[in-house]
Design a protein around this nucleic acid. Structure first.
Length: 141
DNA sequence: GCCAACGTTGGC
DNA sequence: GCCAACGTTGGC
């Protein structure tokens, strides 16, 4: 299983809205960046991801799961853009702030730190475990 | 709200 | 295919 990180400005789409979508989940539409799209194209159902609030919040707030593989983005007719569906799995007992991530030397290679502009990013197994632990999740995943 | 970093576009 | 101009993102 692979791990990812999904960024959203909470003004536009936030964790509570994601939770409200329940088991069915919701399209992660609106991505118009090739790198982010390519990341979604290689996701498989069951992959897990962090849900991160950018601009406001600046913290990882929850765990999501990919519940549909990449398909055309319903919000555009442009065939270049695909997206997956994700559903909320669980909130982090303690949200992990960007400050905390930056302060942890083990996380210095996270894409979130290295390339803050990429909206859908890969997360390594090690990074996943560390952020889950910081967030108060005993068993990751 | 500012602006640095990054990605994309388009003229050449 | 280069690169200047432009638009967007997101931390601050």
């Amino acid at each position: 299983m692979a791990y990812w990180l999904f960024k959203s400005e909470p003004d536009a789409w936030n964790w509570d809205q994601q939770v409200a979508k329940g088991e069915a989940g919701e399209e992660w539409h609106g991505v118009r960046n090739y790198q982010a799209r390519n990341n979604m194209r290689v996701m498989v159902v069951g992959d897990r991801g962090f849900f991160y609030h950018s601009r406001q919040g600046l913290e990882v707030v929850g765990i999501v799961e990919v519940c549909a593989a990449a398909h055309p983005d319903s919000t555009t007719d442009d065939p270049r853009w695909d997206c997956v569906d994700i559903r909320a799995v669980a909130p982090l007992p303690r949200p992990v702030t960007l400050d905390a991530i930056k302060a942890d030397p083990r996380l210095s290679d996270m894409v979130l730190v290295r390339n803050s502009r990429l909206s859908v990013q890969p997360v390594t197994d090690a990074q996943w475990q560390i952020v889950c632990a910081l967030g108060g999740l005993e068993k990751a995943g």
